[in-house]
């Protein structure tokens, strides 16, 4: 995993900042999808899932409506399956709502090359034909390899190729923070 052997050089977001960032993203998402019906918040496994849950909870509190949600695992849709890497652990996907006609907001922790969200879009499409797909990332670290941009960004940071960004979340890592480190 990315956490192993990572030499942390700086913390770019602490718990309080993360909360504020997510709050702002929530408002942006509401502003954008507010008039739309059939909205669904979908977290990309693994660390997109708790972020999606937080966003979902806040949207439901603020808008006082029930919003559909789900999780998606992209292991089976990766494009680097045969590149000599260890086969990724597959986890279950879970989209228990009608994808046809839904306005889906995909949530992930970090956008980097764009290949993960490409795979996630393909995965969602296998469940049906959504009306639209939007994409929110807590951190945008640049270095895109595909023509894909997020609709909602928590924080954009400049990083080098030899650096890595790691998001720590209470639900998984017992604390909230985002760090940059050397690989």
């Amino acid at each position: 995993m990315k956490r192993k052997g990572l030499n942390i050089t700086k913390v770019i977001m602490n718990a309080e900042e993360m909360e504020r960032t997510i709050n702002r993203m929530v408002h942006e998402i509401i502003e954008r999808v507010g008039p739309k019906k059939n909205v669904a918040i979908v977290g990309i496994r693994t660390r997109g899932v708790p972020i999606a849950e937080r966003i979902l909870k806040k949207i439901q509190e603020l808008e006082k409506v029930k919003v559909a949600s789900g999780t998606i695992d992209i292991a089976l849709y990766r494009d680097d399956f045969f590149k000599g890497l260890a086969s990724p652990e597959v986890g279950p996907s879970n989209l228990n709502f009608n994808v046809d006609g839904a306005n889906i907001v995909l949530i992930d922790d970090v956008i980097y090359t764009g290949r993960t969200v490409r795979a996630a879009i393909d995965a969602v499409m296998d469940y049906g034909r959504p009306a639209s797909i939007m994409y929110a990332a807590l951190v945008d670290r640049g270095h895109r390899e595909l023509p894909i941009q997020p609709d909602f960004v928590g924080k954009a940071v400049q990083t080098g190729d030899n650096e890595a960004v790691a998001v720590y979340l209470k639900e998984i890592d017992d604390e909230d923070k985002v760090v940059v480190g050397e690989k």
């Binding site: 695992d73 849709y77 296998d126």
Partner: peptide, 19 residues
Amino acid sequence: ETAVSFEEINQRQIKKVPT
């Protein structure tokens, strides 16, 4: 354990992944 994830695919409407 890996098979659990594949069981889900067999219940989808489109029972196919590009892996």
